[in-house]
Design a protein around this nucleic acid. Sequence first.
RNA 1: GCCGGAGUGGAGAAAUUGGUAAACUCGAUGGACUCAAAAUCCAUUGCUCGAGAGGGCUUGCGGGUUCGAGUCCCGCCUCCGGCACCA
Length: 807
Amino acid sequence: MTYDHKAIEAKWQDRWESEGVFHAVEDVTRPKFYNVAMYPYPSGELHLGHVRNYTYIDLITRYKMMQGFNVLSPMGWDSFGLPAENLAIETGIHPRISVENQITKMKGHFRQLGVAFDWSRELASHDPAYYRWDQWLFLELYDRGLAYKATAPVNWCPKDQTVLANEQVVDGACERCGTVVEKRSLAQWFFRITDYADRLLDDLAALDDWPDRVRTMQRNWIGRSEGARFRISVEGTSETFEVFTTRPDTIFGMTFCVLAPEHPLVEKLIEGGENEDEARDYIVRAGRESEIERMAEGDKTGVFTGKFALNPVNGKPVPIWIADYVLMSYGTGAIMAVPGQDQRDWDFATKYGLDIIRTVQPPAEWEGEAFLGEGQTVNSEFLDGLDREGAKERILVWLEEQGIGERAIQYRLRDWLISRQRYWGCPIPMIDCPECGLVPVPRDQLPVELPDVDDYAPQGRSPLAAVEEWVATTCPDCGGAARRETDTMDTFVDSSWYFFRYTDPHNDQAIFDPDKADYWMPLDQYIGGVEHAILHLLYARFITKFLHDIGLSTVDEPFLRMFTQGMLVKDGAKMSKSKGNVVPPDRYYRDFGADALRLFELFVGPPTDDAVWNDSGVPGTKRFLDRIWKMGTTDPGFVDREPNDDDDRLLAETHRTLKRVTEDIDRFHFNTTVSSLMSLANLFQEYLAGSPREKTFAEAYRIMILMLAPAAPHVTHELWELREMGPMLATEPWPEWDSSLVAESTVTMVVQVNGKVRDRVDVPADISAEQAEELALALEKVQGWINGAVVRKVIARPPNVINFVVG
RNA sequence: GCCGGAGUGGAGAAAUUGGUAAACUCGAUGGACUCAAAAUCCAUUGCUCGAGAGGGCUUGCGGGUUCGAGUCCCGCCUCCGGCACCA
């Protein structure tokens, strides 16, 4: 017996839409619940991996709604970006057209899955009505000095012909296409996220409902180091350079200094020197190599500048070297090298025959290598005898007194490089005027719309640069001829604030109404892939803090509770379009229905873990739904009799299941939610096979339908209506369990002898230790195992277990 | 190298606090129904010794704590993820 899933599912999808069941309106009389799944890139296909995520978000939406919350669950599109643009290069079709087609397709998929979204708030980042506010946000950042243009060595992807943010370089390669990135020195736009490094780090501590691994990843990414920054002068000149160190206590062990090849002082140091040619040669080579190539060589390389630096503590001259193991992008691009206490400096010193002075006393048996452990400070004049912390404190005070340096905190986090030399993104709203310099586009001229181009192919500059009539403009300040910025923004700018826009998606006067944002923010639940643990989640936190600082948001953390779901794996790889192993859900909709598919995706394993797709699972969950359907539709009527033990047990088990299911949903154990419901259905089946059904069954069945509703909404809505159990199920309150029914009256007690299970016996739940012992000792098997020996000890944990220790 | 997480039957897995290891589902085997098949229903299904009654073993490996360990502690192995010349 099977139900007509096609007809039923289509019917309820229509009803939910036409009755606006999931349309959310601010309502101060009810607690709100803001529930968001990360907005997807509109790839056109919703595959089984996506289905898993959206089933989770939908289950929560429906469950919270039944619990009486005013739930907002919106959906939108991360529609700018490279995939659409690359498709345009291939086909010549404008990305807007392909993206909008794909959005239509995907909306159809969401509908077929029965996901409860509030479509009235739909947004798309490629829509000028949306990206206008990206540009506005950019200008707000610019006004406060948090958006700036600077020339710096940047990561360049030669395949995609664009720069990449630090976060988008994985193992030295482009995150998108896997091409090894090159270093290039280019003038680019940055957001000064490093200004927020401290807050981004400190506030992680309060995000208790985030997965620990995500918080750890962010903490490591921000990478806070405490130490000192101080100036070192170059012997025989008036030049100085600055270094950062976490070990100022080892300053007496500085036997040389190293500058990054890109360091601005390098040119002055080598010019006219004995080593000039060799040094120039080295700098050119280092500049050509990617970071991977540098590291692949293994061996550290460098070249002597010919100049000496003076150690500020004792005036001793030490050679200044250039080496690419010092990075221009971290700290000051220059270091004091202390080979005695730093392995990298040790390697370099031994290779080039430089001095090594130990300033921390290693253990007696210590041989070779830098010593990084704790020990007494030695060879360090006024620091001698102090431990690490004592020496650190002492030298910091000394450096500050001398006016040479100060305490400093250094972050691994770099500023966020947001410009891209690509077409399909939000134009940066700036104008370059030969007279006035960089001038922001006045806010009343926003949006700066993306013009059409003939050729999307990247050529090392944005395709926009070829659109002369667009680039040529007038300066808003002086009215003279000027040119527009042709780079577009990283799409992570679009996604760093879209959850604010959902709260007021149609506002054309402001980015959003702060009162509306105040009602909905922060998100009560955010769900997405762990691959966004650093990029998107860090950027979104940064922009939220900024919106807070300029008075638009009352919250400075956007996501109260974060959930990262596992991936769906097939043929040993994550299910994704780029891996070519996606399974579209269509066949499952057709053969088994969305409810069966949803149920299996919930059942397949713990939501946080990766799950392996198994094709025979969906028929299994469909069988389960068919059984539920059969129980509810083939009704022989109820016999009029007093409830018996079977009825009592049925109701009690139903309430126990209700408790378990409620708690499991609350802690995101959706797989056991489903298995509990299956177990209960098995009991129903057993009950129905026994004595004729009494009206207790109707109550148990009603609770079953309510519990199943968030997971399998279509078939449960139909049953609810068919059996005339009430108005629309979606808005029915979540049931509450009766604790007197949940409590067990009889428990199976395990009887152990020397820790081994020897028998089991049913006992009253409130049995005393004495009674339990008496009862257990009387058991034949137990007697057999004790066999006359002395019982030395009895551990009774009634009513669960009793253990006789025999000697 | 550093920082996380994981390892349980043929498969996915379960076991909120240290108290019946393997719930639930898939798969497999046998049976009922059927002319037959599908569907459905019933039974068996961790390994092992035993004709049976029943016993022994079992949560990556080796130790430990405990009356009792998948769960806690110590030492390993393997896999996955993140970071990685970050001074």
